[in-house]
Simulated scan of single mutants.
Amino acid sequence: MTGRPSLTQRRRDATRLDIARTAAALFAERGAEATTAEEIANAAGISLRTFYRYFSLKEDAVAPLLAAGGQRWVELFAESSADLPVREALERSAVASLTPADESAAEAMHWTRSLLRDPRLASTWQRVHADSEERLRGVLADRCPAGADALELRLAAAAATAAIRVALEEWALSDAPVTGPGSPQELGARCMRELTGGLRLWSRVT
């Protein structure tokens, strides 16, 4: 057993992401309130029934797209060198995940900006970050020595996730580019340093 998702699961994940991209494009153009689930399904080439097999609410259709960056961030942190202090490893991983690798990734960042400006999607955004915080707490627990303080782990995961959330929200309210001054990666690094500076966990090398 390799732990790799089955072919069926990979197809389901691909379909979910395709629906998410379709919904994001429509929401960016019209807004979530003016877009129906049926319109998303038609644009994605699926039936309305199939849409509701994947998402119970039209607003949740963009959750996979909003969650992708956070998932990549936690994965990069999990793969980072154990020689790095936790704080440095997590900051580097965050910056890398917030830096678009190509034009497609840059377009997704612009979609994210539009989505974060839409008040109808606020609850979806909060759920995405709650899930990201939970995943990060598990990875931190695996990386830190046995017996690490559970409260400290929880605070660290909450602070780091809040740093990325605030950075993206501030960027979304601005007209700053996806790279360079005022970009998500610059704001993310700044917020990470500000919010995690007082936590002992971040100075440890594991």
Rank of each mutant, 00 (worst) to 15 (best):
V139S: 03
E107N: 07
A41G: 02
H110N: 10
H129E: 10
S123D: 15
S6W: 13
S56V: 09
A94C: 14
A156I: 12
T2C: 15
S114E: 02
M192A: 04
V74K: 07
S104I: 05
M1V: 08
E29S: 04
G188R: 01
T112W: 05
R193I: 06
R4S: 15
G31S: 06
S47F: 07
A189R: 04
V128T: 11
A67W: 06
A141F: 13
I164K: 05
G182A: 04
V139K: 03
A141I: 12
G70D: 13
F51C: 01
R16G: 02
R30F: 11
Q9G: 08
S56T: 07
A34L: 08
W73N: 08
L17P: 00
A157G: 05
L115T: 04
L116P: 02
A130E: 14
L116I: 02
D60I: 05
A25W: 03
E103A: 10
A61R: 01
L199P: 08
A157L: 03
S6H: 09
R21P: 01
Q9N: 13
L76Y: 11
L90K: 00
E170V: 11
E38F: 03
V139H: 02
V128C: 08
E186T: 06
L195N: 09
I19S: 00
A68F: 05
A43F: 03
D60W: 08
A63S: 13
A156G: 15
Q185S: 12
S104T: 11
A162F: 15
R4V: 15
L48P: 00
E39A: 02
L153N: 04
E169T: 15
E107M: 05
S123L: 13
A176F: 05
V166A: 12
F51S: 01
L187G: 05
A41W: 00
R16I: 01
D131W: 14
E88N: 13
T22V: 04
Y54N: 05
N42T: 12
A146P: 08
A105Q: 04
E134K: 15
A167R: 10
A158K: 10
T50S: 14
R72H: 11
T99W: 09
A130T: 15
R137L: 11
G147M: 15
G69R: 01
M1P: 05
V95M: 13
R12N: 08
A106R: 03
H129N: 15
R72W: 06
E91G: 04
A158P: 07
A108F: 01
S114V: 00
V74S: 05
D131C: 14
L153M: 11
S93G: 12
S104F: 06
E194H: 06
A105D: 05
A37W: 01
H129F: 13
E59C: 07
P119Y: 12
A148V: 14
